[in-house]
Nucleic acid binder design. Structure first.
Length: 781
DNA sequence: AGTCAGCGAGTTTTT
DNA sequence: CTCGCTGACT
């Protein structure tokens, strides 16, 4: 086939039976999928209506749709290209009545889930302090991903107390969603699998419809998605999955890498095609990627290659702190663009969203156009959630969650006490909150609130009228802003913050109008669905000539000529969590993430890190990331620097020298042993800024320590969790507390690794506190 | 009912 | 450090 290499061609021409395409980064897998669609249609004569392509993100779906349209003429639009989630929503919109759900169901986001569980905990009188709702949600999500129903879950965990409790919460949670006619993200797939299982006619309908199925990013599928694909494909077995086990980076979300690793076990007659020729990156970048990923075990053996030459070498820089790191990055961006690079050719990638702030600030300072993706999601902002809650209530008022959110926003004098009374009445009479409010005169115990509530009900009814009149969505949107007084309130406030909120609301309005123009027939439910399923990065456009900032996760599937991987430090990347994790695979997942990051780069890759960085409110020194060490020094432009860096780093690890003040360090542990790093190292009470952070040790240990004055204090692994807490004050000593002021230590009781300190404060009051948390400073008198 | 201060807790990645 | 919640006060 035109424009394809032999392996790609082979993959396209395999039509009948299961097919596994192992497609390395940048190996042209989208090209293969689109050509395969064309081949099916043009050569085999498959009806495009019978082809389903599932992608992972909406962005990928849109891109694929685009490319299919370009190479296939007639009928391309009839190919079904979508994400798992939107496919499931489609199916559920049509058949949710078979599961006892109405078709105008809501889709819960994680906030909605949280408040649902919170309410349940309240009802069940479970203390959220002891058992946080996050824990239950994680466990519930886990169960759903494995297709375990509440009943099954209860049976499986009958002996474990916490788990029986979780079973109850899970069951209550599902009852609640059922009552409110809502699905959460996991449900969308879970419920489709359930639907198929119990309704063979529906399953067969879709089996016949989707005779040819392709799944992209198969390494990111979880068990329930695996089940769904299996159901759909079981009749015709024309299943083609595409993926790269080295790019599996969503384990935390339930992605199961064994789906792709065991595909051949599940489908023994599967044909396997490996795509290893890379068309994206230059040789040096590929060599770095291969070198890093080679350190993982439990992967399918493969190595990317290119015939496009070595290209430019990599650049690595360690800066003093994160501000200097950002400066360096920005300077290089200025240099690149001065030499002809476009802003949009450049991406700044990092491990955590928090890192974007400083990079963004520096870019603003130098007037470089840029855009930060991800982070505080647009739809998570308060004002957006408020307006969306109005829209959701208008769409479907069975759900108390959204109603409670807006009933007193803006303030209209309906307080919690009143709402609780109405809610109690509703519960007693088996109604929804809205239903109870519609007959508010019958609810006992309310005085003035009656009028307020009925006027609120009228307000919502008015909005609903707009929908019934088939007025455009934007009309409803504007009426909500006006009639509720939401907009006026923000205008009146006239602070920077309220103005920003107004801008956000304006942006939301733009999206409403855009949606209206894109889909003329669209309903309110369609709009809400679009919002629920489409993320920020999906909307990324190539037109804007801007530098792009995003997490490495967010960059998957994208490519940029110039890539900066920032914050290449131990405990940042790999993350502290992965380093400390019991799970052997956690570090491998980080490494895969690193592989993904490296392979985004086409022409040139910059890696950078900071010697010390503010993290969780305190400054810490971190070693250079192990991933840097895994890249052969010769691949770097400044290989001399690298070897020097790495060498110094190793010296610090293996030698117990005065350089780091590593006296109390884990000198016995070499390398990156588990448990070497443990989060907070505030035991000493002496911060980074204190003039001599070692003074406390010398005092307590009564043993001289040689500190070379010129060396910088290095905070890092020398504070291990097993380190006994050392205090520089004792009973009778004068100390200063950040909040309580000066006082005298009256008692010091040792407990475990910590001390319980009792201090008599000058300004009155005696307090007991833990030495590791109370940042007490000794006062010299 | 609403506001505000003070405290505590949690900080990876997201369809 | 920053957010969110609680509880006391107006």
């Amino acid at each position: 086939m035109a424009g394809l290499n032999d392996m790609q061609d082979l993959a396209c021409r395999h039509v009948d039976g299961p097919l596994l395409i192992l497609a390395g980064a940048g190996s042209g897998k989208t090209r293969v999928i689109t050509h395969r669609v064309a081949y099916l249609m043009d050569e085999i004569g498959v009806n495009p209506y019978n082809i389903l392509a599932i992608t992972f993100t909406n962005k990928a779906a849109a891109e694929m749709r685009d490319r299919v349209n370009n190479i296939v003429g007639e009928g391309a639009e009839r190919v079904w290209v979508s994400t798992f989630h939107s496919l499931c929503v489609r199916i559920l919109r049509r058949f949710s009545d078979r599961l006892g759900y109405a078709t105008n169901f809501n889709i819960y986001d994680s906030d909605d889930q949280k408040s649902a569980v919170k309410n349940i905990l309240k009802e069940l009188k479970i203390d959220p302090k002891k058992y946080p709702e996050k824990m239950f949600l994680a466990e519930i999500s886990n169960a759903k991903e494995r297709y375990i129903s509440p009943d099954q879950y209860a049976k499986m965990n009958a002996t474990d107390f916490v788990k029986t409790q979780t079973a109850t919460v899970y069951s209550e949670y599902m009852k609640r969603l059922r009552k409110f006619n809502a699905f959460d993200f996991d449900d969308l797939i879970y419920k489709v699998v359930e639907l198929f299982e119990h309704n063979p006619d529906v399953l067969e309908l879709y089996q016949d419809r989707f005779r040819y199925i392709m799944v992209d990013e198969y390494q990111d599928t979880n068990h329930i998605q695996f089940l769904m694909v299996k159901q759909l494909a079981s009749k015709y077995r024309n299943l083609c999955v595409v993926g790269d086990d080295d790019q599996s980076i969503y384990k935390f979300r339930g992605a199961n890498i064994t789906n792709i690793l065991n595909f051949e076990k599940e489908y023994p007659d599967a044909k396997v095609v490996k795509l290893e020729q890379n068309y994206r990156s230059c040789g040096n970048i590929l060599a770095a990627a291969n070198a890093v990923i080679k350190h993982n075990e439990g992967r399918k053996d493969k190595a990317l290659w290119t015939d496009q030459g070595d290209g430019e070498k990599l650049v690595f820089n360690q800066s003093e702190d994160e501000y200097m790191e950002a400066d360096r990055v920005v300077n290089e961006i200025i240099r690149l663009t001065a030499n002809g690079a476009q802003y949009k050719d450049i991406a700044l990638l990092y491990r955590t969203n928090a890192q974007s702030r400083i990079l963004g600030e520096k870019l603003v300072m130098r007037g470089i156009p840029h855009r930060v993706y991800g982070g505080q999601n647009f739809y998570e902002r308060k004002e957006i959630k408020d307006i969306m809650a109005y829209l959701k209530v208008v769409n479907n008022s069975t759900d108390d969650t959204y109603l409670r959110r807006i009933i007193n926003v803006p303030k209209r004098g309906i307080g919690d006490a009143t709402v609780d009374k109405v809610a109690a009445f509703a519960a007693a009479n088996d109604m929804t909150l809205m239903e109870a409010m519609q007959i508010i005169e019958q609810v006992p115990g309310l005085q003035r609130s009656v009028a307020k509530i009925s006027s609120f009900v009228e307000l919502i009814d008015g909005f609903r009228g707009i929908i019934e009149e088939q007025e455009p969505l934007s009309t409803l949107f504007d009426r909500i802003l006006e009639d509720t007084g939401y907009e006026d309130e923000l205008i009146a406030e006239h602070t920077d913050e309220s103005m920003a909120r107004l801008e956000n609301i304006d942006e939301l309005r733009n999206r409403v109008v855009q949606f209206e123009t894109d889909y003329e027939e669209a309903t309110l439910a369609d709009f809400l669905e679009d919002i629920a399923l489409v993320s920020e990065t999906d909307k990324m456009s190539d037109d804007d000539n801007m530098v792009k900032l995003m997490t490495i996760h967010g960059s998957k599937g994208l490519e940029f000529p110039y890539v900066f991987l920032c914050g290449m430090e131990e405990r940042i990347f790999p993350s502290a969590m992965a380093i400390n994790s019991d799970d052997e695979d956690a570090l491998e997942e980080e490494r895969r993430l690193c592989y993904v990051g490296i392979t985004r780069a086409m022409k040139k890759l910059y890696l950078s890190c900071a010697r010390n960085r503010m993290l969780h409110g305190s400054r810490n020194c971190n070693d250079i990331s192990r991933f840097i060490k895994e890249i052969p020094p010769l691949l770097f432009q400044n290989s001399g620097d690298i070897t020097r860096h790495v060498k110094r780093m190793e010296e610090r690890q293996f030698a117990d020298t005065g350089y780091t003040g590593n006296r109390y360090g884990s000198s016995g542990q070499s390398g990156y042993g588990k448990g070497s790093y443990h989060g907070k190292s505030s035991q000493t009470g002496s911060g980074y800024s204190s003039s001599n952070p070692y003074s406390s040790y010398s005092k307590a240990k009564k043993e001289p320590i040689s500190i070379t004055p010129s060396t910088k204090p290095s905070f890092g692994k020398e504070f291990t969790v097993n380190r006994e807490l050392v205090l520089d004050y004792g009973e009778g000593d004068r100390v200063r507390h950040m909040k309580f002021g000066n006082g005298t230590v009256t008692q010091l009781v040792k407990g475990g690794r910590d001390y319980e300190v009792t201090v008599d404060f000058d300004r009155g009051g005696t307090r007991k506190m833990f030495a590791s948390f109370a940042k007490l400073k000794r006062l010299e008198e």
